[in-house]
Every structure is written in structure tokens, then in C-alpha cells.
């Protein structure tokens, strides 16, 4: 019998690290269009951050603060990707026709906005959802 471990150091650093990871994943996600990265990798990194939280805390306390059904999240992700494809069709374009344009936004200056980004959001959501579903399913099986 051992005394209960004190996880203060781990918890503190984990929170910080998670913030860095999330920032980084968002960065990866946005950079995808011009630099290495993109929805898939961004999603997986986010998932990694969530897994880190699960690791150092526990599933239930994270679920309490982040009450998300990851299966649904994944489904919504795929749906977003599909619907960006469908959206083009309403304008008489082909399925999955992506458009992009350059807009002068007040804060960001000239910014490129592409429907492909929306597609990528779907990808990212799907990846996060699936990855977490797999991880939690397995760990709930009392391995």
C-alpha cells in the first residue's frame, strides 16, 4: 500500500502544455493551406492534447468540463465536409467545388478565405472525434 500520489506538478504543467498543444494544433490547422499541416494533422494534435488531459487527470473529470459526445462530433465533422461539397452545387457548380477569395478584414488585414478551410474543419472534427472515440472505448474496456 502506497500513499496516494501527489500530481500537482504534473497537473500544472499538463494544463500549460495542453494550451501550447491546442495553440499549436490550431496553428497547424490554419497553416495547412500554405505550409505543412492541415485538418488531419491539426485534428490529431488536438486529439493528442485531449489525450494528455485524460492521461494526467481522468476521463470523468474531463468529460465533466468538456461534455462532448465524440462520436457525434466525428459524424458532424464528416457531415461538414460533405455539406461544403454540396454547397457548391447550390450555385450550380460541381460537387466539392471550392472557392477562395481575398478579403480585407478590419483586424487581420488582407486575408484569404477559402471554402476549403471549412472542409478542413470537417476533417479536423472528424479526426478528433474518431481518435478520442477509439481511445476512450479502449480504455473503458478495463484493459
Amino acid at each position: 500500500m502506497k500513499p496516494k500520489a501527489n500530481d500537482v506538478i504534473l497537473h500544472t504543467v499538463t494544463k500549460l502544455a495542453a494550451i501550447i498543444i491546442f495553440t499549436f494544433s490550431i496553428d497547424l490547422f490554419w497553416a495547412g493551406h500554405h505550409f505543412p499541416g492541415g485538418g488531419f494533422i491539426g485534428g490529431l494534435t488536438t486529439a493528442a492534447g485531449i489525450v494528455l488531459l485524460y492521461l494526467s487527470f481522468d476521463i470523468e473529470s474531463i468529460q465533466r468540463n468538456l461534455p462532448i459526445d465524440y462520436k457525434k462530433m466525428a459524424a458532424i465533422g464528416v457531415l461538414i465536409a460533405v455539406f461544403t461539397g454540396l454547397a457548391g452545387m447550390f450555385y450550380g457548380d460541381n460537387f466539392l467545388e471550392q472557392t477562395f477569395g481575398y478579403f480585407d478584414l478590419p483586424v487581420f488585414g488582407e486575408t484569404e478565405l477559402a471554402t476549403a478551410v471549412l472542409f478542413d474543419v470537417g476533417v479536423a472534427l472528424a479526426v478528433i472525434g474518431t481518435a478520442i472515440t477509439i481511445i476512450t472505448s479502449i480504455s473503458e474496456d478495463e484493459l
Binding site: K72, A75, I76, V78, V82, L86, M89
Partner: peptide, 16 residues
């Protein structure tokens, strides 16, 4: 696209 995409969409909606 519909024979491909409609079952997919429906299947995804069932998850929700």
C-alpha cells in the same frame, strides 16, 4: 454524386 453521398449523409445523421 447522390447515389454515393445520400447514403453517407443518412448514415451520418443516424449517428446523431
Amino acid at each position: 454524386i447522390f447515389p454515393v453521398i445520400l447514403p453517407l449523409i443518412a448514415g451520418l445523421i443516424f449517428i446523431l
